[in-house]
Design a protein around this nucleic acid. Structure first.
Lengths: 135, 135
DNA sequence: TATTTGTTATAGTACATATATAACAGATGG
DNA sequence: CCATCTGTTATATATGTACTATAACAAATA
């Protein structure tokens, strides 16, 4: 499996799992219709408790990334088409608030507007246009 | 005082206090040399425990925002000149990692590179070039 | 020198994280 | 149909963080 957890990290395990699955969705490594391993098998592979994985899955379900269907387990959803406008707007608001927070901290440390835009643009390029992609 | 806390917020009180002081430094409301209220008086004004304020002050000291001098209390530092290169680089690395995380989540939800850059630029303008400033 | 400062120590409550069993309803493959 | 696997829920325990409550300390200062 493509997942691994860092027990010594400050970030809770269930958030690490969620973040890595979201990252896989972003990169296309996981596409709509793909199945995730069951909470029990993934917990076994990672060496963590079942409930820790279940918490990550429940969060992904609440955020619209996956759907649960009885025995079929967790399946990646097409969040682009399925997403409720409410969830989409909620996400944009959180994103905006986080960007404002980061900009404020940079300004407090003597950073400039252009420096913030430059760093943000560099990360946008790194994430959306990774090297080795014909985009 | 310009500070207030939201007890019902998910954000810990000591982080709220820290964030608001950093924000005041960013806006210029607090300038190098300005004194902060004592941990006891601010705790009394906010209706929280002394240790909660002390935790925020200790964090600000560790980050280089303020200096402590015995009875003189907490004084805003000139972080632009005083900041150790190590702290500055550490902050930039954290900022870069957070920007990458936000960009990844937007991409996972079907957002585009340009949309991320647009949102980041808008927040940069809002924070660095607030309305009613001759900049 | 008496007071105020941040700092530290100790103790208690509340909540989040993670673990460990156990049982449940629903979907599904045989 | 039915045994099985799925996510889900219910307890219980342990640990860490957040917050509160007193209390005392060294350092700086008016």
């Amino acid at each position: 499996m493509f997942l691994e957890v860092d027990l010594s990290s400050d970030e809770p395990i269930y958030r690490q799992i969620r973040a890595q699955i979201v990252s896989a969705v972003a990169s296309g490594e996981l596409a709509p219709g793909d199945s995730l391993p069951s909470v029990r098998s993934l917990a076994g592979d990672l060496g963590v408790n079942m409930h820790t994985v279940n918490k990550a899955y429940a969060m992904l379900r609440d955020e619209g990334y996956v759907t649960m269907r009885g025995r079929s387990g967790a399946v990646i959803a097409d969040i682009t088409r399925m997403a409720s406008p409410a969830r989409a707007q909620e996400h944009r608001e959180r994103l905006t608030a986080e960007l404002a927070r980061l900009a404020t901290e940079l300004k407090a440390r003597g950073g400039t507007r252009d420096e913030f835009v430059r760093l943000a643009t560099a990360q946008a390029d790194a994430v959306f246009c990774p090297p080795g992609q014909g985009t």
